[in-house]
Design a protein around this nucleic acid. Structure first.
Lengths: 233, 233
DNA sequence: TTCATAGTTTGATCGTAGCCGAACTATTGT
DNA sequence: ACAATAGTTCGGCTACGATCAAACTATGAA
């Protein structure tokens, strides 16, 4: 007779590859529909329904019904922490879901994470903005500072259009390849859109890889890296 | 094609009840033999061998051969953190390995954790000693302070006999029912032994429950709770 | 050497859980 | 009303993995 929390139950839920893929896909904080998750997990809708029912009833995910869709999200920060801890163990022990190769390297460099930019390029931008005081963490949530608003306003980002939705303006999103945060939220989406619109980068079709031209990447780095409000002499 | 750490592999290893029991048994930091773990998991030695081989080759446990025994330990702090994170999720979602009952309550109050005291009583002693500066954390490890040595020396604890083994004198051990640390290591073992020797408590046979008499518990609390070195007026 | 104990390998059994196709319900749009 | 799409339920198939008994190897004790 054993006592204590049933760790095996929750671990076995995450331990099934299809369900693990679903949970990983949701780790960005974005809500995804059942069909999205089925595709992400590589299973058919009926199978996905079964998995999702288990994950919800176990308290790992929460479901929100909207019209004829059902959107799923990670149930809470504790689940996120558990997944991140498992990632850390898997990474240390060298267990990877696939071999590393040249295409993998391109993905690590820059890729789209649903609708925003991820990978080394995105993580560097995030780090720069944190260091410059454009972004800051407050109470576990990511905020755009006053300074940041001025900075981005001067660079042609229209906040009005981004802030009237119920979606948060900015949100930290864990970057799997870099193990640091990058920028998500409507602002993150806007930046990826702008990057493509300006011709700095192109999204590969059917792939998540984002290809920067050499000039484009230089321009992009210059765009985000100029110090905000340089001190007047 | 997916990329990133194979979280499903490590989660599925922990997700099997027998293996989860093994890992939980090792969470105290104590090394256990294959037979111990087989008993702990409720399986026969051949089955345990199979499970342990998987856990070792996946990097969750490390094995150390000593004579005709093989002792297993948690491979690293990252594994411990992952298990604790899973415990947190399971506890929040209310997944327990067994129903709570009166016997469970007795176990929560006081029980033996291999050879030292655990449960509410043990956690309270630990908290008192931390607050009194008898114990302190230094670099992730638990230390007995100079003050603590004087305090315990005056209470008849023989350090010579405890410190010449390779086993650490004191070690923090996570208490499942209380979710806080209690004292393990050779000092922890010595204290449980003393508690029983003085007749303050008795170990139930074949059970991990430790039964304190009312007088015994009062004595025990008095023993550990007097402020060390009361300031002379 | 001989016996006893700790642990492993092998082989065979058995349950469970994942999976999908097909049929079904619910919601939206025309 | 009708079609289209999102999601679910059902039934049956399949495969993987947990399990143990028995035989085996390795170490220590008598």
């Amino acid at each position: 007779m054993k006592y204590g929390p049933d760790i095996a139950l929750v671990a076995s839920l995450i331990g099934e590859p299809a369900r693990a893929n679903m949970v990983l896909a949701l780790m960005s904080g974005q809500a995804l529909s059942a069909a999205d998750l089925a595709r992400e997990a590589g299973v058919t809708p009926p199978t996905a329904t079964g998995h999702l029912a288990k994950l919800v009833s176990a308290g790992l995910l929460v479901a929100r019904k909207q019209g004829r869709h059902r959107y799923f999200e990670i149930a809470g920060p504790d689940v996120g922490q558990a997944v991140e801890a498992l990632i850390a163990v898997a990474a240390r022990a060298g267990h990877l879901r696939a071999r590393s190769g040249p295409k993998d390297e391109a993905m690590r460099h820059a890729r789209s994470c649903y609708d925003h930019l991820a990978g080394r390029v995105a993580v560097e931008m995030f780090g720069h903005w944190m260091a410059s005081g454009i972004l800051c963490w407050r109470g576990g949530a990511l905020h755009l500072t006053r300074k940041g608003r001025d900075f981005l306003g001067a660079r042609g980002i229209a906040f009005d259009a981004l802030e009237n939705g119920k979606r948060p303006l900015c949100r930290g999103c864990m970057d799997w390849s870099e193990k640091r945060h990058h920028l998500a939220g409507s602002l993150g989406a806007q930046i990826l859109e702008m990057t493509v619109a300006k011709g700095w980068a192109a999204r590969e079709r059917n792939m998540r890889t984002v290809s920067f031209s050499r000039r484009g990447e230089e321009n992009f780095v210059r765009w985000y890296s100029q110090a905000p409000q340089p001190a007047a002499p």
